[in-house]
Deep mutational scan, measured.
Amino acid sequence: LETFPLDVLVNTAAEDLPRGVDPSRKENYLSDEDFKAVFGMTRSAFANLPLWKQQNLKKEKGLF
Score class of each variant (00 low, 15 high):
E60N: 07
K36I: 15
E15A: 13
Q54G: 00
L1N: 13
L51V: 12
Q55L: 15
G20W: 13
V38S: 05
V38Y: 05
A13R: 14
G62A: 03
G20A: 09
V10A: 09
K36P: 02
L9S: 02
F46I: 00
K61V: 14
L30H: 01
V21W: 05
Y29S: 07
N11R: 09
A37N: 13
A45E: 14
F4N: 02
R43E: 01
K26V: 15
K59A: 11
V21N: 02
L9W: 01
K53C: 13
V8F: 15
W52D: 11
Y29L: 04
T3A: 07
K26D: 02
P18S: 04
K36N: 14
K36M: 15
T12I: 10
R25H: 15
N28S: 10
A13K: 14
V38E: 03
K53S: 11
D16V: 06
K36S: 14
E15M: 07
F39R: 00
W52G: 08
E15W: 03
K59C: 12
E2C: 15
P50D: 08
L63T: 01
E27M: 03
V8S: 08
D22K: 15
P23L: 07
F39E: 00
G62S: 04
P23R: 06
G20K: 05
L6S: 04
S31P: 01
K61P: 00
A47T: 11
R25T: 07
K59R: 12
T3G: 05
R25V: 08
A47H: 13
S44G: 12
L30Y: 01
D34S: 05
S24Q: 13
N11H: 11
L49I: 06
M41H: 01
K26N: 02
G20D: 07
D22G: 01
K53Q: 14
D32F: 05
L9H: 02
T42V: 08
S24C: 15
L30C: 03
D22Y: 03
D34Y: 01
P18C: 06
D22Q: 04
T42D: 14
K36R: 14
N56F: 12
D7N: 11
L63S: 02
E2I: 15
D32G: 05
E2T: 13
K36H: 15
E60L: 12
L6Y: 15
L17E: 03
A47P: 00
E15G: 11
G62K: 06
D22P: 03
D22V: 05
P18H: 03
G62M: 05
D7I: 09
K58V: 04
Q55A: 11
Q55R: 12
P5H: 04
L17W: 06
K59F: 10
F4P: 02
G20P: 06
T12V: 14
P5Y: 03
K58W: 04
Q55N: 14
P5S: 07
S44C: 13
N56I: 14
S44N: 12
E60W: 08
Y29F: 08
P50H: 04
D22R: 03
R19P: 15
L51A: 11
L57T: 03
L57V: 05
K61G: 05
L63C: 06
V38H: 05
V10H: 05
F35C: 00
L63M: 08
V38N: 02
A14N: 14
P23T: 06
P50W: 01
S31T: 12
L17R: 02
L1A: 13
S31K: 06
N28G: 05
E33K: 11
L17M: 06
S31D: 07
V8G: 03
Q55D: 13
P5F: 04
L17Q: 03
R19I: 15
S44P: 08
R43K: 11
A14I: 12
L30F: 02
P5V: 03
P18F: 01
G20F: 08
F35T: 00
L63R: 02
T3N: 08
N28V: 12
F39W: 01
D7C: 13
W52A: 09
V8T: 08
L57D: 01
K26S: 04
F39L: 07
T12P: 05
K36C: 14
N11Q: 09
V21F: 07
L1C: 14
D22A: 04
N56V: 14
P50N: 04
K36G: 10
L6N: 03
P23S: 07
A47Q: 12
S44D: 13
Y29C: 05
L9M: 04
S44L: 13
E15H: 12
M41R: 01
A14H: 11
L57R: 02
N56Q: 14
P50S: 08
K58E: 02
Q54N: 00
L57C: 05
T12N: 07
R43P: 06
V10E: 05
N56S: 14
A47M: 14
M41I: 08
E27N: 01
A37M: 13
L49M: 10
R19W: 10
A47R: 13
N56T: 12
V21A: 04
M41C: 06
S31A: 07
L63F: 09
L1K: 12
P50G: 03
Q55G: 07
G40N: 14
K26H: 02
K58T: 02
E60V: 08
T42W: 04
F46L: 01
G40Q: 12
F46P: 00
K59H: 09
K26C: 06
Y29G: 02
R43G: 01
V21R: 02
T42R: 05
V8R: 12
V10L: 14
D34H: 05
E33Y: 10
G20H: 10
V8P: 01
R43H: 06
P50L: 02
G62E: 04
K59V: 12
T12M: 11
M41D: 00
A13V: 10
T42A: 10
S24W: 11
F46M: 01
K59I: 12
D7W: 15
D22I: 06
E15C: 13
A47L: 12
L57S: 02
N28H: 11
R19S: 15
L49D: 00
F4E: 03
K53F: 13
G20N: 11
V10Q: 14
K61L: 09
N56Y: 13
L6A: 06
Q55C: 14
L30R: 01
F46N: 00
S44R: 13
R25I: 06
R25Y: 11
D32N: 09
G40V: 05
E60D: 11
V38K: 01
E2S: 12
K58P: 00
N28P: 02
T12D: 06
T42K: 07
D34K: 02
E27G: 01
P18L: 04
A45L: 09
Q55T: 14
P50Y: 01
D16P: 06
Y29W: 12
K53D: 11
T12A: 11
K61D: 00
E15V: 12
G62R: 04
V38D: 00
V38I: 09
L17C: 06
D7K: 09
R19H: 15
P23E: 07
N11D: 08
K26I: 15
K36Y: 15
